[in-house]
Amino acid sequence: RIPFDLPEAESELIAGYFTEYSAMKLGLFMFSEFIQIAVVGALFATLFLGGYNLPFMTDAGFSFPWGTEIALSQAVRVPLQLVTFLGKVALLCVIQIQIRWTLPRFRYDQMLGLSWKMLLPLSLANLAVTVVWMWLAGGGQ
């Protein structure tokens, strides 16, 4: 994905390795890219944002920390959960597309410089800090 998709550029007249495809085959490739955005949004919403539940929502309704409980019937709860999940997925899709259209593309020399000069030393420093932290915390025993 952008900004790391160096072999192709969507703004080019010829779309890189999609040159030999046309009609339905090209349409399926483009469709699969946009379906991937929705699938990633759904997985992220499920794994990290609570899926179809709103904050303080249980299977019986709402249960607030100060003791108030609001019971909801299944006819109200299921559409509310469906709308909540689809709203989270739509928001995540918008965020992914916004990032995709906002970030610039890197040239090959810029990507290699970023990888070797910034990301590799940063990852090694992260590894060293984690090892020292675990050693000091006694996590190695």
Results as ranks from 00 to 15, higher is better:
A137R: 15
L80S: 08
I35D: 01
F106C: 02
F64Q: 02
P79M: 03
V39C: 05
G41Q: 03
R100P: 00
W66R: 01
G61E: 10
L92E: 01
R77N: 10
S115M: 14
G16H: 05
A75K: 08
Q98H: 07
E10C: 06
L13Y: 04
E20G: 06
Q36W: 04
T68E: 12
T130S: 14
L47T: 06
I70G: 02
P65N: 01
M118N: 10
S32P: 03
T58V: 02
I35C: 06
N53Q: 10
L112M: 11
W133H: 13
F62K: 00
M111V: 02
L43T: 08
V40T: 04
G16P: 02
G51Q: 03
F29W: 14
F56D: 14
A42P: 00
G113F: 04
G138P: 08
L54H: 07
Y108A: 09
T46F: 04
Y52A: 13
L72P: 05
T58K: 05
V89C: 05
C93Y: 02
Q36H: 07
T58S: 15
R107P: 00
L91H: 02
G138C: 05
S22C: 10
A42Y: 10
I97A: 09
G140P: 00
L49M: 15
M111L: 15
N53S: 10
I95H: 00
Q81F: 01
G138T: 11
Q81T: 03
Y17C: 06
E20D: 15
G140I: 13
L127M: 14
T84W: 01
I14L: 15
Q81W: 04
L112F: 07
V83Y: 11
L82S: 13
T68F: 14
A38F: 07
K25V: 12
G67C: 03
L28F: 11
Q110A: 12
L82C: 08
L80T: 10
W133M: 13
D109A: 12
L119D: 01
A137H: 13
V76R: 03
P121T: 14
G50P: 00
L47Y: 11
R105F: 04
R100Q: 08
G16M: 04
T130H: 11
P65T: 00
L86C: 12
A15D: 14
L103F: 10
V132C: 08
D5Q: 09
G139D: 12
A128I: 12
G27E: 07
V76Q: 08
Q96G: 09
S11Q: 10
M118T: 15
P3E: 02
